[in-house]
Computed example of a mutant assay.
Amino acid sequence: MPLFWRVCLINGAVFLLGTLALALSPATVSAQPLLSELVVLLLGLTVIVLLNGALLRTVLRPLDRLTAVTGQIDLRHPGLRLDEDGSGPARPLVRGFNAMLERLELERSTSTARALRAQEAERQRIAQELHDEVGQSLTAVLLGLRHAMDSAPEPVRAELDELRGTTRASLEEVRRIAQRLRPGDLTDLGLISALAGLARATSARNGPRVRRRLPTSVPDLPSATELVIYRVAQEALTNVVRHARAESVDLGLTLSDGRLVLRVVDDGVGIPRGAMGAGIQGMLERARMVGGVLDVRAREDRRGGSGTEVRLSLPLPRRAEP
Rank of each mutant, 00 (worst) to 15 (best):
A201D: 15
A201T: 11
T202I: 08
S203C: 08
S203R: 09
N206S: 12
N206F: 03
G207Y: 03
G207P: 07
V210Q: 08
V210I: 13
R212Y: 00
R212H: 00
R213S: 15
P215R: 10
P215K: 10
P215F: 07
T216R: 15
T216Q: 14
S217L: 07
V218H: 05
V218N: 06
V218E: 09
P219A: 05
D220Q: 10
D220V: 03
L221R: 04
P222D: 14
P222V: 09
S223W: 03
A224I: 11
A224T: 14
A224F: 00
T225M: 14
E226P: 00
L227G: 12
Y230I: 11
Y230N: 13
Y230H: 15
R231G: 01
V232F: 07
A233L: 07
E235V: 06
A236F: 02
A236C: 02
A236S: 12
L237H: 06
L237C: 09
T238M: 10
T238L: 12
N239L: 06
V240A: 14
V241G: 03
V241D: 10
R242G: 03
R242K: 15
R242E: 14
H243W: 11
A244P: 00
R245P: 00
E247K: 12
E247I: 01
E247P: 00
D250Q: 13
D250K: 03
L251S: 05
G252N: 08
G252L: 08
L253Y: 04
T254R: 15
S256P: 00
S256W: 08
S256K: 15
G258R: 10
G258Y: 04
G258H: 08
R259P: 00
L260H: 03
V261N: 10
V261F: 03
L262S: 07
R263D: 14
D266S: 08
D266G: 08
D267V: 07
G268P: 01
V269L: 11
V269S: 09
I271A: 12
I271V: 14
P272G: 11
P272H: 11
R273I: 08
A275H: 12
A275V: 04
A278M: 09
A278F: 02
G279H: 01
G279K: 01
